[in-house]
Design a protein around this nucleic acid. Sequence first.
DNA 1: TAGATTGTTAATCGATTAACAATC
DNA 2: TAGATTGTTAATCGATTAACAATC
Lengths: 214, 214
Amino acid sequence: MTQIDRQSIPVPTLRRMPAYCNYLKSLSVKGIVYVSTTAVANDLNLIPIQVRKDFEYTRLSGKPKIGYNLELLIEAIEYILGWNKMSNAVIAGVGNLGKALLSYQGFKNYGLDIIAGIDQDKKKHGKEVAGRKVYPPEQIGVLVKENKIGIGIITVPAESAQLMADLFVKNGITALWNFAPVRLNVPADVVVQNENLASSLAVLSQRIKQQKEK
Amino acid sequence: MTQIDRQSIPVPTLRRMPAYCNYLKSLSVKGIVYVSTTAVANDLNLIPIQVRKDFEYTRLSGKPKIGYNLELLIEAIEYILGWNKMSNAVIAGVGNLGKALLSYQGFKNYGLDIIAGIDQDKKKHGKEVAGRKVYPPEQIGVLVKENKIGIGIITVPAESAQLMADLFVKNGITALWNFAPVRLNVPADVVVQNENLASSLAVLSQRIKQQKEK
DNA sequence: TAGATTGTTAATCGATTAACAATC
DNA sequence: TAGATTGTTAATCGATTAACAATC
């Protein structure tokens, strides 16, 4: 196998990794020990060569005719995805979307622990959502210091998203997961991952149109 | 300009279209009449040539030194995105995420009207969320017939997502917007758009790692 | 006019897919 | 052994970026 820089995993490959991982775990439960790229591709609606290329980034090697060792494969992908160690996050905006993300139990498996909520609404302060307390924005500084917060999740309305981003950045957070439909202006050293429903809807709409044309 | 098939707009271009549209509308409010790709690129953190390539798909032509007519540009992009005509949708799963999507007012601007909710919980039946009523799953057939429902949105827990997909498909819906973290098995003529938070998180995690290495 | 911007063709880059020898 | 599957190199495909003449 050629030497591949760990940091150079292509984004499309990276986006497929969680699906591989979850699928492989479901095989693991069944007591399977080796898995071939042919089998994976078949079950995930991909083609074997693509799975093989993706698996190259694990730096593992498989055995011809047998496949890859399932446990090692899962371990390697979890390492790539960072699912083996937790990152703490705080979520700003405890509306319906914020509550949904706070309540979603799956993030724990994805290496993300949302440890608290932030909201301007005084009525929400001190209350709990899925076992996590809600604090006023002024508390961000304390929360970050006491809990090694690496990620700020933004689920406030569009109007206040930039303000929240500024507040997060001011308190030393360098990674934002932004669900508000606005571009955020942040310093160059801050990573922003935008979740853009309008983009997804645009793709869906076009695919519907094309489907109808057939 | 070369002849470009409307249906062949690349997905990356399509995903940028909503941002162009919203940005151009914000200029329109200011009374601006012509806009150059240089200006757009500058404000959206893109490069002019990319904006120019993307604008080719509108089949409009701009004037050298002046730019593109703002109103025509907005109109053309809205047409491409289908924002000029409404599609009706029903959302299955009125939990926190379902409520968040039902309550989000922005979809109306994106040509999507979620006209009702579906939930198994009897306590929710007849109640309203953001002015839209919640019905039991058995009502899907009637809702689809009476309202020209084209899109089924799935925000139920992972365990029941496939069941809901089947129910939607059985009632003639051929487009699904899936927020549950599972692959759905559907007939070939059904379009499924998956919203995958695990994939986004994977990209965010890698970008955080790379940022730290600098 | 001068120069900014468009329209268009070509070059580059990166991901996907194909081909095939090696191997268990 | 036969044949399925891996590892690796090459071909293809599509999007991005560059280059530059045309033009207002």
